[in-house]
Design a protein around this nucleic acid. Structure first.
Lengths: 212, 212
DNA sequence: GCGTAATCTAATCAACT
DNA sequence: AGTTGATTAGCTCATTACGC
DNA sequence: GCGTAATCTAATCAACG
DNA sequence: CGTTGATTAGCCCATTACGC
């Protein structure tokens, strides 16, 4: 899905944010911070933002790109380096648990956002800042709002539920079931009597390993 | 749900269509037509509209109000008066089968309508005519569009599906099931062996009458 | 607990040098 | 043309975790 | 066949005489 | 203030029937 006609691309890509260029000193600080922790929390990013005089969202993007391009893929599940110092237990844990506070939108704000979304799902930077000004929300939040929630979400959800309802039937024991959820119920009801069944249960598929 | 504060009512009821007043002769013709057929088809209404020089939608409303207020409730299912003439079989059947052609909306028109709807679910006559002009559709269609389709519909649909998914569990045989659909499957699988079960199956509930 | 904002990865687009 | 900031998709909605 | 525009009823709002 | 045109809801989406 790479090469489309350039016409629709111009629709999509009009008015993007002007490219930020960091100075030498700014980059120095960023690289230094990255080497210490490629996954800074919100406060860390905020601190950096103040330190180098940039928006926090730009720093967010910088870290994302840096992570994607300078190795360091696969975010460590908990802490990847237990050999390091673990002296101050409170100072070290700035890894995952520190993020921007959830912004909650009033219904009128949601209205405005949804309307803007239906009119143009890919607003340029100017439209976004206009919106941000209008509803009193940082532009970075407006930018991230659209894919997150709103109508498209609802459409998708509906489609999924539809498909889930029309899901292929599964076989368990002597019976046929339509929904994985019900299969689970059935198995949990019978697992005392038929204890040797091995069931792999994921969100969307269930496989019965052994027969009755 | 009758008496709310008058404030929101003014929001809802601002800018309604100016009250049409029919002349004596117009009323005479309308009453005459009503006595012949209280449920005129589209062509009949159109004919009347030309005859008395009024919009077809106004005539529609007039007939609705007349039906509601001058007896004649309970629309006959097929034809309520078989004792009458049945000589010309083609001329008589102008009852239900003659209606305005479906207007189909382009996606851009739908966009405009939906946006207008989310901005203001109850537009006044002026907003409606503005919209109608903008998208090239009769105002009467714009007026009727909003409750018909659009977003609200989708919301309702989702809510229903949600409820269907979270339906109460049912008991059949020794097992517990979550979905009525699955209950149906189960029963159909076992109905040879347990043939005396009586099942009432509707869209939303299934009741097992007899035990195993 | 559910809803959903925040966050993430992978891929691509595009401005600047 | 390479570098790198910005944007987009994420397809049985990506994953996580927090506010209400 | 499904999606949905057209149509309907019952109730209420509200302008005009 | 009654008559009557206009509007709104229709609560497990009001019902009907037509276009695609």
């Amino acid at each position: 899905m790479g090469q489309d006609s350039p016409s629709d691309k111009t629709m999509v890509t009009k008015g993007r944010r002007s490219r930020t260029s960091f100075t030498e000193e700014q980059l120095e600080i960023l690289v230094q911070a990255f080497s210490q922790n490629p996954y800074p929390g919100y406060t860390a990013k905020q601190r950096l933002a103040v330190e180098i005089n940039a928006e926090e969202s730009r720093i967010q993007i910088w870290f994302q790109n840096r992570r994607a391009r300078h190795g360091f893929l696969k975010r460590p599940k908990k802490k990847l380096d237990p050999s390091k110092d673990h002296a101050s237990p409170k100072e070290k844990i700035q890894d995952g648990r520190d993020r921007r506070c959830r912004t909650s939108y009033t219904s009128s704000q949601l209205q405005t956002l949804k309307n803007a979304f239906t009119e143009n799902p890919y607003p340029g930077i100017d439209s976004r800042e206009q919106l941000a000004e209008k509803i009193g929300v940082p532009e970075s939040r407006v930018q991230l709002f659209l894919p997150e929630t709103g109508m498209a979400q609802k459409d998708q959800e509906m489609k999924n539920i539809q498909e889930k309802t029309n899901q292929n039937t599964h076989i368990a024991g002597n019976f046929e079931y339509k929904s994985v959820l019900d299969l689970k119920l059935y198995l949990s009801e019978t697992e005392d009597t038929v204890a040797t069944q091995h069931v792999t249960f994921s969100k969307r598929s269930a496989v019965v390993a052994s027969g009755v």
